[in-house]
């Protein structure tokens, strides 16, 4: 598993529940370290153990935990990069939805060994879409719930009003139903192209 993923989980716990909760959870796993390095690779098993331990410690179901992590990655003010990079996908939420088809490729351009699930958007008309979340190449963790959290936060970011429904998984793919109720429901957060750039 890429360190960026593990690091995101770690930052989520630290920023949401505090340092002590993180240290307590990670120490119990006896990994020999308490911090993940964003630019290193870890065994997928480590990620699974951390997630299971967190679910127990926080008293949450794994799906809820996953969705919270997805939302955190986009909406927490301390980590700007994922939100900004996703916002490059489109000028409005519909544009953004369609850009998800290229997301895995885009991510590979930035960090070549970042193994994201393949996403496939289907437009059913009248603001109804379905997003198929495939498996990653190097691990069997299903990230559909994380994608749900990301979508929810990105809709907020664009100021769009959406209804999301997780339709379950089959044959290694998960399906998320997206109903776009209003594209300009709220003003959303601003996005300036040059704001990140070389200094970000």
């Amino acid at each position: 598993m890429h360190g960026l993923v593990n690091r995101a989980i770690e930052r989520f716990v630290r920023d949401t529940y505090g340092r002590d909760v993180w240290l307590e959870t990670i120490r119990r796993l006896d990994l020999g370290y308490t911090e993940f390095e964003a630019m290193m690779t870890y065994e997928p098993q480590v990620t699974k153990e951390v997630l299971a331990a967190l679910a127990t410690r926080l008293g949450k179901d794994l799906p809820d935990l996953f969705e919270d992590i997805g939302t955190y990655m986009i909406s927490h003010p301390d980590i700007e990069a994922p939100r900004r990079l996703l916002r490059f996908g489109g000028v409005d939420f519909v544009d953004f939805l369609h850009s998800l088809d290229d997301l895995a490729e885009r991510a590979r351009l930035a960090v070549f060994d970042l193994d994201l699930p393949t996403l496939e958007l289907r437009d059913h008309g009248e603001g109804s879409y379905s997003l198929t979340v495939g498996l990653c190449e190097h691990h069997d963790l299903r990230l559909g719930r994380v994608v749900m959290g990301v979508l929810r936060a990105m809709a907020d970011d664009y100021g769009a009003l959406v209804f999301l429904e997780y339709k379950g998984e089959s044959a290694g793919r998960e399906v998320i139903l997206i109903r776009l109720l209003e594209t300009a429901f709220a003003s959303g957060r601003s996005f300036e192209l040059g704001a990140g750039g070389l200094t970000g």
Binding site: L4, M39, A81, L85, A110, G194, G197
Partner: peptide, 14 residues
């Protein structure tokens, strides 16, 4: 611009 930003973020992590 996307690439510059993505690469800068990755570079910063490195």
């Amino acid at each position: 611009l996307y690439l510059i930003e993505a690469k800068s973020a990755a570079m910063e992590a490195s």
